[in-house]
Design a protein around this nucleic acid. Sequence first.
DNA 1: TTTCTTATTGAAAAACGTTTTCAATAATTA
DNA 2: TAATTATTGAAAACGTTTTTCAATAAGAAA
Lengths: 139, 139
Amino acid sequence: MTAEHWLEQLHDHGYRITAARRAVVDTIFGATHALTPIQVYDAARKKYRALGLVTVYRTLEKLEELHLIQRVHQPMGCQAFIAAGVGHQHLLLCQQCGQVEFFEGDDLEALTKSIAKKTGYQIKEHWLQLFGLCANCRA
Amino acid sequence: MTAEHWLEQLHDHGYRITAARRAVVDTIFGATHALTPIQVYDAARKKYRALGLVTVYRTLEKLEELHLIQRVHQPMGCQAFIAAGVGHQHLLLCQQCGQVEFFEGDDLEALTKSIAKKTGYQIKEHWLQLFGLCANCRA
DNA sequence: TTTCTTATTGAAAAACGTTTTCAATAATTA
DNA sequence: TAATTATTGAAAACGTTTTTCAATAAGAAA
């Protein structure tokens, strides 16, 4: 998965490849921290000065729609985005530096079954996120 | 835990008991659905007409500060609040009617240990939330 | 290429949700 | 009962996100 692949995906869905979209895609793709629209705007404008904030919003919207990025929910806010994980993955966030990592291998089947029985709910999905200190920030 | 107890808590922390705060507290306490500030405002104004939206925001802020309510993160938005769970509890949300339930008994120790080892992170906390259909909405 | 069609653009304005400011009011203290 | 001071609602300010719109540029067709 490369930034160029994201552009292909956009193209395959009938969207045009523009300098503005390239700048936004290049900025979020490969970012190690979740970025808010304004952070994307500031960073992407270093690559393409004429970029407008509105276009950032519109591009983020399309990338989210294609599941190439996903919103990151944090105690301080829920406006930031990060490249989406592939398959069934969850987020691990560093509380100090904000670094984002993905992990998989959560097995919640026993839990969801037990909760379903107790509550009468039919469980459809779950949302799991871990917070802590990354190797760098621990030191 | 009663609505009156919430007011006591406010009082014990130096806050005054007013008609406006009573209306807000009575509205969120015991709600089965997470409520946004405007929803609280609309509902609470039926009990106390002169209530202002600003006071709703200010009261919610204090209730959250005292851990009596908590913010609910949902795909559609993260502005809604619900009475906080006691101890280590997580949320279960009905995707259709929005009903909120708490559950406990999640054991993520094995998982967090494994992730910590793999990533080098020191895991400090976790967010877990289940989504599904409540008994009523299944039928 | 060149022309044509139409999606995309940035700027400005509008629309939100939330916070701040402020004088009037009402809850607690003396 | 009087004095103090937190609290109030309205208005204004604020930050974020969306809509509107004429100009532009991407991609398709020739």
